Amino acid sequence: MTNPFQFKAQRTQNKKISAWLVGLSAFFSCSLLANTLTPYHAEYQILRKGSVQGSATRDLSKIDGNTYQLEYQSDIKWMIFNDKRTEISMFTFDNNRTQPIHYDMTRSGTGPDKEYTVSFDHTKKTITSNKKKYPLDITWQTEQQDAQTYQIQLRRDIKAGKTKLSYPIVDKKGNQRNYDFEVEGEETITLPIGNVKTIRIKRLYDNDKRQATVWLAPEYDYMLVKMYKGKKGIEQFQVQMTKYDIK
């Protein structure tokens, strides 16, 4: 396994990092140019109005060469509502860029069970979905991401000191859209794992009805340690990290 810190000495000399990030995490800047990802296992609790309503896990595994798998599982119970889902993304990582290969999402619980798959053919430059008979009628973009891989690209770009970010996404239903983000600043937050220094990032929407904020922690290799989602100023849910292990 590649140690994410092993290139510190040689990288610090060559990498310029934005001023607001230098004081926060110079120690972790060593992995910015590494052309590999560090496999991990992370656990989260899902809350609503301060009460734990479920749990989630996120696992990154290396398949071979520059091919990886990201798996997310969640289990939520709230009153009579129950939701279990699994998302799996297969992708490559090269030159500090993620390229999705295949995305699969299954959901069960209250209401009908559902499954979505999206496949990316980088040779033919086509994207197919199990909900469509033919390739999706959307414009191929080199930076195209799936519903999970953009999160990995976001972490890498924040490591590189970027403060405004935009990603073309093909979501689980095969719709194409852009996810836009902006760094708001540094913040120390209290989590079940303790007090954590973070970078707070806001998702930008085309209206003010929805709100989403994520907190990435340099000391945990810029992992997502907290997320907040709201609608019309009312909290929908929060996610907080409870455990993080390097595989």
Rank of each mutant, 00 (worst) to 15 (best):
C30M: 08
D245M: 09
Y103R: 00
D180Y: 01
Y40I: 02
T36R: 08
L32Q: 11
M105K: 03
R203D: 03
C30P: 06
K202T: 10
T12Y: 10
E71L: 05
A42L: 02
W78G: 00
V52S: 12
S61N: 13
S25C: 11
T12E: 12
R107K: 15
F28R: 14
V214L: 13
D180F: 02
Y167S: 00
T190W: 08
T110W: 06
I80C: 00
L60M: 09
T142F: 06
G194H: 00
A19F: 05
R11K: 06
S166L: 13
T139C: 01
F181G: 05
S129F: 01
T98H: 00
I17R: 02
I76M: 06
R177V: 00
T142C: 08
T149P: 00
E186H: 06
G50A: 07
S18H: 14
K84T: 14
M223Y: 05
T106G: 04
G194T: 11
D221M: 13
Q69D: 05
S61L: 09
E187G: 05
I189W: 00
S166N: 12
E187N: 03
T67R: 14
E186C: 02
P192E: 08
I46H: 01
Y220K: 10
A19Q: 09
E182A: 11
M90Q: 13
T38N: 06
W215Y: 11
Q145H: 15
T128N: 14
I199N: 05
D208I: 04
T163K: 07
I101L: 14
M1D: 03
M105E: 02
Q73E: 10
T12V: 14
G161A: 07
E219C: 08
T213L: 00
E219G: 01
D245W: 06
I169G: 03
Q148P: 06
M227P: 04
S166W: 09
F81H: 07
L191Y: 05
T149R: 10
K8F: 07
L191R: 11
K162C: 03
K125F: 10
N82W: 08
R210W: 09
T106Q: 14
Y40C: 00
E87W: 01
F5T: 05
L37M: 12
Q6V: 08
E87P: 05
E182G: 12
L32V: 13
K173I: 06
H102V: 05
K231R: 15
I246K: 08
